[in-house]
Design a protein around this nucleic acid. Sequence first.
DNA 1: AGAGGCAATTTTTTT
DNA 2: AATTGCCTCT
Length: 825
Amino acid sequence: MTQSDHPLLKGLTPPQREAVMHAGGPMLVLAAAGSGKTRVITRRIAWLIQSGAAPWSIMALTFTNKAAGEMRERVTELILGPAPEDADPESPRFVRGLTVTTFHALCARLLRRYAEEANLPGVKPDFTIYPTSDQLAIIKQAVKDADLSTTNWAPRSVLSAISAAKNELVTARQYEANAVDFYHKTIAKLYAAYERGMHRAGAVDFDDLLLLTATMLRDNASIRGACQDRWRHLLIDEYQDTNKAQFEIARLLAGDGRPADELADMPGVEADTSTRTGPDICVVGDPDQAIYGWRGADLSNILDFETQFPGARVVKLGQNFRSTAPILGAADTLIKRNKQRKDKPLFTDRDGGERVTAVLCRDEHHESNLIADWFTNLHENAGVPWREMAVFYRTNALSRVMEESLRTARIPYVIARGTAFYEREEVRDALSYLRVVANQADDVSLGRIVNKPTRGLGKTSLDRIALLAGREGLPMFEALRRAPETGAAPGAVKSAARFVQLIDDWTGAGSFMGASVSGTLAELVGRVIDESGLSAHYRKVANASGAESDEERLDNLDELVSSARDFEAEFDPLADPIADEADPLDMDAPFDPDAEAPAVPVPPLLAMLRAFLESVALVADADATDPDQGAVTLMTLHAAKGLEFDAAAMIGLEEGLLPHSRAFESEAELEEERRLAFVGITRARKLLHMTSARYRTVRGATERTIPSRFLSEVGTDHVVTSDQSDAWDDVDQTTDQPRERSYDRGAAVRGDLDRVREQRRQISATASDLAREEYPEGCTVRHPQFGEGRVMRVMGGQHARAVVRFASVGEKTLVLEYARLRRVR
DNA sequence: AGAGGCAATTTTTTT
DNA sequence: AATTGCCTCT
């Protein structure tokens, strides 16, 4: 078989092949948007394995779980072949020992495994990962303790200062040493206090995961050595988004590479030995898609790669296989405006394709209706599946109006907000209980649930107990045990004892790892939700008001149990980068893709709980996009990176939104905004709509807007612009009030004004019929506040109304347009 | 102690 | 508009 016939090289361009086959040593793949970057990485991993590299010697790092999951899946298919139809979902297919994960998840695992050995200050293996909201709680306390006002020292900005420092690998001590003025000295003080608070709670934050891992690898030769011995091949995706800490981790993991002779027997490799030195680190990225400068990403990591890894091979992938020529043309014209940029070709060999459209709309409702109609049209007339459509926006707030329009148009949609579920009050409460179970020093979580549902532990008593905790340097939970000493009210003391007993029951009084607490993770989660009184609490509320939100809360708690069950079922101990501890891999055995996975001892419940909480802490918004869903996807431009759709809409192209007003100050940030727009444009395969609204209501105030500079910067060769913002008079001149906002939406897309006017005349006439059709008398509906009710009467006219009799509040007359009614059953 | 109401305030993006 | 925090009332 000649090389080019190799199945892993099939259909690849010469530069893609070069990257896949690269013999080893540092390599930088500059991959333009849509140039088959993921393909190259996955094929390279498969290539390495087929060339004799052990799967467990390969590590691929991504930024989101979703990207990691997809990569893992694609490598599995390349190695094991496509999944059989009758595949047992219970026994997941995976390439044993291969590490494909996110930076953060890798760091979490490494820290749990090595924190004790490395003797990192304040980090125990049972650490909790604090999300931003919990970080803020610690900072707020630190600000208060320092007798500063949270007005002058907004926790949010203090946090970003600390975070920025951590991303630069600056510790609290170093920060203090460098602080010269009052501001920096104060931040230094707060940084130190924050660290103390985190240590006390046994918590680390997202930045710590990276910082501590980098420090650990740097300062501890034996741990570094162990990692370098294990992972000989390192691949990093989206390298343009790495920050200094991530660069350090990559550099330390890559080490100095292996002796050249280890590579000598790789088949299909050119006899070019000059490239066979240095660490086998392969990074893939595109400087034009760098959009995370604000969280410390450092473009010099990719720009200076050749300096940092001497002798690096550079492969450029410029040919785009994704988008039509007009879309690429628009993207290219736009990105050329950036001054801080190495120009690189972006080309396709395909002709044709529809031009990009830019539409200036009247307001955000017009805008979202326009998109909804476009989608409907594509779906019904062009047969484009819903899942091939997406809406991108700069800020999450823009999703709301879009949702409304999609709902009205009965278009199925999903919002890519992976974290949303875990941010819900009831879910956070349940997780807080679980986190206290996993780590009893977690004071922030404890504080949230110690009296929820209320169990007679009020502020006064808790303050007294907190005093004891502060005096003796105890975690709150320990202080609760000693409540009798605090002189708290007898009732409160009793409550404290009951609470302590509750937690102790779940943990087997600290003997968690023993056999005293058995069962599955899902059982534990269910038990905690139940015995904590949370479910009873919400059930009571739900029964009392019948409101949707409370029923929903119960459902969400159930869903948390199911997600625990799923996690347990899918938990793959061998996918764990440190699995070799629990189940030593036979490093010398030849890799056999068909070998049965060995029976792995079920991890103890506590380990499972920690792994579950960790996975929950590390979910990304982008993880929530599910390509199998038959639904339009709504997401931020940031979450869109790495994805592609047949038809995409970018909304809110206005000065202040995209580019965002916070970026006006600096040229560098403006260029990042431009890259963000570039990322959005290049997500579209065939059709792209860009819209801007003449008026937009933000935080309750309607403002006149200015169309984004990017709309003109995409040029006119590939883009058709139409101004529909004044296609009709929407304001009644006599009262200066807006008239009912209705227009023919299909016609608006086509810009057919006569039809618009005709349709408008008809709309009010048919409104009542439509309303009756949608809400026939006697049907049951649900209102977000009032709960379920029965429709008694429907009235038409300009603002169709319905009289609804609610169980909770009696009869109400609701304007259908505004009352977010939903039919039940 | 705890719930509910009112006022103030708003990081844009995320692991 | 919506969330969050503070304060009052029961």
